[in-house]
Simulated scan of single mutants.
Amino acid sequence: MKTCLPFFLTISLLIPAPASSAFYQWTDAKGVVHMTDDAHKVPKQYKGKATRIEVKEPARLPEAAPPEPGPAADLAAPAAGRGEASVPGGHDETWWRAQFGELRSELKTLQAARSQKEQKLVELRRRRAIFQRSRDRAAINEAEAQASADDARIGDLLNRIAALDLAASKAGVPAEWRQ
């Protein structure tokens, strides 16, 4: 047993842990969106408004694989079969714009809902501090669980956008198609 323990400890240290990181995002008084990876760099006046975004390491895409087809894939079939000369990634402009637009609109909607849930959570915590009711604690737990689920979904969407952007870069998709 004494000889097995160091062996297993050494093996466990050699296995890489999945990489993940957190970013903090806030919008200043001028409407400019800022992001940082250090919570201490968020200005004091925006600490309550900063949202934490969990980002996991994106899955590696195979060299020849196109990005994941989404519901918008049916909007525009790959243009390679239509005889067009050079179509980046096997898809036309409409397909690329639809993919990026769909992901970004879902992200924007989710971030807006997340900020409303954060305001509700602040109100619930204030109510709990004043009245000390157990049902308020249950509501806080539920709101925190919803906020955590939203954070995970936002992180997933950011990863999908990054993966799609990487695939678009490798395919030579023009920047204006990624808007």
Rank of each mutant, 00 (worst) to 15 (best):
R128W: 09
L107Q: 08
R97D: 01
V122C: 02
R126P: 00
R97K: 14
F100M: 05
G89A: 04
A113Q: 11
V87I: 13
V122K: 08
R125A: 03
E84C: 10
L103Y: 01
V122N: 05
K120A: 12
H91R: 12
S105N: 12
G81A: 15
K117T: 04
L124R: 03
A113S: 14
S105R: 15
E102P: 00
W95A: 01
H91A: 08
Q116F: 04
E102N: 09
K120V: 07
G83S: 06
P88R: 01
L121Q: 05
A113K: 10
T109Y: 06
S105A: 14
G81P: 00
A113P: 00
T94H: 08
G81D: 11
K117E: 13
L103K: 01
Q116P: 08
G101M: 04
E102I: 09
L121F: 07
R127W: 09
R114L: 08
Q111K: 12
R97C: 02
T94D: 10
S105I: 11
K108T: 11
W95F: 06
L107W: 00
K120G: 12
S115H: 09
L107M: 10
A129Y: 08
W96T: 00
E84H: 11
K117W: 06
A129M: 13
A112V: 11
Q116H: 14
P88G: 03
H91S: 09
G101N: 04
A129G: 09
L121M: 08
R114W: 05
R114T: 13
E106W: 02
V122Q: 06
E118K: 10
Q99D: 07
V122L: 06
E118M: 12
Q99N: 12
T94S: 09
E93H: 08
Q116D: 15
G90W: 04
E118C: 04
A85I: 11
R104G: 00
R82A: 14
G81T: 14
R82L: 15
E102C: 09
R128I: 08
L110N: 04
